[in-house]
């Protein structure tokens, strides 16, 4: 209870200045701290799977992405329209506060006891053959959503690359990093990835029966893959590389093929053969992890940029 209130107070104390910050860089630093605290909120909500994801993506990958953007925009961020007037700001403020209050009131008015699918999930989890109920939902009961989300990530990579300048097409993704430095940074970038890969494999493996799984493992792998590039001791592969594109596509393709196998063998898309459900799920998850990791890393890097050759 006290811990909850402490976390809530800290999160609000960070979120407000993010919105009001004068410089983008300050706002991003605040935002990274906010992401870390959010992970605690998820632990307190008994959502350790989500806490893992939030720590990896919310605080880690997002932080790196946004810090990079803030640095590049430091010269003068693009301003779109004229800023709203004082009266307008006040009006929007009242409106947003009203929405927040209404939302809070409605949350207090949610039915008690809460309707839930926890029981049907546990009653049927044996057929999915995994111990972690969240994984059972992701890969079993709502497998279609997960499959399509994996496709969304592939689409996001296509969309990102579509934003490249024509002159840079086919080149390596991302902006040119400052030249390599020897010393602690380069050392870290050499030492950390092997450890990270082991941790990622562990998180993926336990994910079948305990909190963890492909998204979390993929986020860690992506971070470890990015490290040497960020430290300037290695360069990412050009986006025209065939293997890169094949790895990104492999996960969703494997998932879709598993789905059609269910159509043929079991009479329903994404139905797993009894006794082999866990084997199929883990096989698909391993391929998916590789695809998602590469996709996430490429999304952080951004499209190929023109200043690379300059």
């Amino acid at each position: 209870m006290i811990a909850d209130l402490l976390i809530v107070a800290a999160i609000v104390a960070l979120a407000l200045p993010v919105v009001l910050a004068r410089s983008a860089f300050t706002a991003v630093a605040l935002f990274v701290a906010y992401g870390l605290l959010l992970a605690f909120a998820w632990v307190r909500l008994d959502a350790v799977d989500v806490a893992l994801t939030e720590a990896a993506i919310g605080a880690g990958l997002s932080g790196v992405l946004l810090l990079g953007a803030a640095r590049r925009l430091a010269g003068g961020p693009p301003v779109e329209d004229a800023p709203p007037g004082k009266a307008q700001v006040a009006l929007i403020g009242v409106g947003c506060a009203g929405l927040a209050v209404a939302l809070g009131a409605v949350i207090l008015a949610l039915p008690d006891p809460a309707p839930s699918l926890a029981e049907p999930v546990m009653a049927n989890i044996a057929a999915i053959e995994v111990g972690n109920p969240v994984t059972a939902v992701l890969m079993g009961f709502r497998g279609l959503d997960t499959l399509l989300e994996a496709a969304v990530l592939v689409l996001a990579v296509v969309a990102l690359w579509a934003l490249a300048p024509d002159a840079a097409w086919g080149a390596a993704p991302g902006w040119r990093q400052p030249p390599a430095t020897d010393g602690p940074l380069a050392l870290l970038a050499r030492v950390l990835p092997p450890i990270g890969v082991v941790v990622a494999v562990h998180i993926l493996w336990v994910g079948a029966d305990a909190p963890g799984g492909k998204f979390q493992a993929a986020a860690i792998l992506a971070a470890m893959w990015l490290l040497p590039w960020m430290a300037g001791i290695a360069a990412p592969p050009p986006i025209s590389r065939a293997w890169l594109r094949i790895v990104i596509a492999a996960g969703p393709v494997a998932f879709i093929l598993a789905g059609f196998a269910g159509s043929v063998l079991q009479g329903a898309f994404l139905a797993y053969p009894p006794g082999y459900a866990k084997a199929v799920i883990i096989a698909v998850e391993v391929v998916l992890t590789a695809s998602i990791a590469v996709a996430l890393a490429l999304l952080v890097l951004g499209p190929p940029a023109e200043d690379r050759g300059a």
Binding site: D49, V50, T53, I57, G58, L117, V134, V137, E149, F215
Partner: peptide, 12 residues
């Protein structure tokens, strides 16, 4: 677990 799974994909 159902909303938790939805949140996971949502975050990604």
């Amino acid at each position: 677990p159902v909303p938790q799974a939805i949140i996971l994909t949502g975050i990604v």
